[in-house]
Design a protein around this nucleic acid. Structure first.
Lengths: 145, 145
DNA sequence: CTTTGTGCAAACGATTTGCAGGATG
DNA sequence: CATCCTGCAAATCGTTTGCACAAAG
């Protein structure tokens, strides 16, 4: 992976034909630096924790732009919440029912479509496995109720 | 499958300890009769097409109740839209990028977890494969642009 | 008769929009 | 210097809530 180099971030933006603005840079850099899968609002809050850097509308618009440029991906695992992920290479997700934490699952873990031809007439562009359950910590807690 | 029998619907509701009201019955019957995966609003509109039968709030509340009772399942494939599905047995989904249509994929099509032990410490409760691409019709349209 | 569901309208949270001013390439 | 981005506040969309009335068991 090895992200976080400012030069690389700027290059990524430029290579997609995007203007490099402080706000857009900040949003993308923040997302690259995080291992969780934050919502737009979480990014907005973290960016402006020290000093105001970016308005709400700008964070939303930056995320849309980044998504259209293919630098960022959305993750939809909960009702009414749209999360974002700077890791665009294909991978799967696990969501803990207890704490809501979302973790990545390596792509190589499953090979679903290689072996199973889908319904005829469907052109497959991508797929993803979503796993739900309890993480280590949450499973331990609910063990002895 | 063979749903749609009013008696069966009433029995399903009762068996989960739910009161059988006309509105709740209508919401569940409508969902059972549909092959698509409608949003709450779509159900609301279809129910009230002929004559007013159920208010918006009641449809939402009925769906919540049915979901808690395990008679209905939510399907999250698009940003900001929560769809519902009366087919609660495990299965996968395909979403067409062109028309947005969602179709079911039989559970037997994939067997992901049987062969792949996940990360240690994770208790798996369920999983689902989400496939994206183009359906027959949409693939044909975009063939010669 | 007690409990639970319904309808309405107002409240709500997340996201989008219109527009004027500002920064980027 | 033309284009695109930002910030603000208002608008919008889907969903939830509070409360009085009505219906189910």
């Amino acid at each position: 992976m090895m992200p976080a180099n400012p030069e690389q971030i700027i290059q990524s933006l430029k290579s997609r034909g995007l203007r490099v603005t402080p706000q857009r840079f900040a949003v993308y850099a923040n997302l690259l630096a995080r291992a969780d899968h934050p919502t737009a609002e979480q990014i907005f809050l973290e960016l402006n924790q020290q000093a105001p850097q970016s308005s709400q509308a700008t964070v939303y618009s930056a995320l849309q732009t980044l998504r259209q440029a293919g630098l960022v991906r959305e993750v939809l695992l909960e009702e009414g919440v749209c999360r974002y992920d700077a890791k665009v290479e294909p991978h799967h997700h696990f969501r803990c029912r207890g704490c809501g934490q979302i973790s990545d699952i390596a792509w190589e873990t499953f090979h679903c479509l290689e072996t199973a031809p889908l319904a005829p007439g469907l052109t497959i562009e991508s797929y993803e496995v979503i796993v739900r359950g309890l993480c280590d910590a949450c499973a331990g807690e609910s063990e002895t109720p």
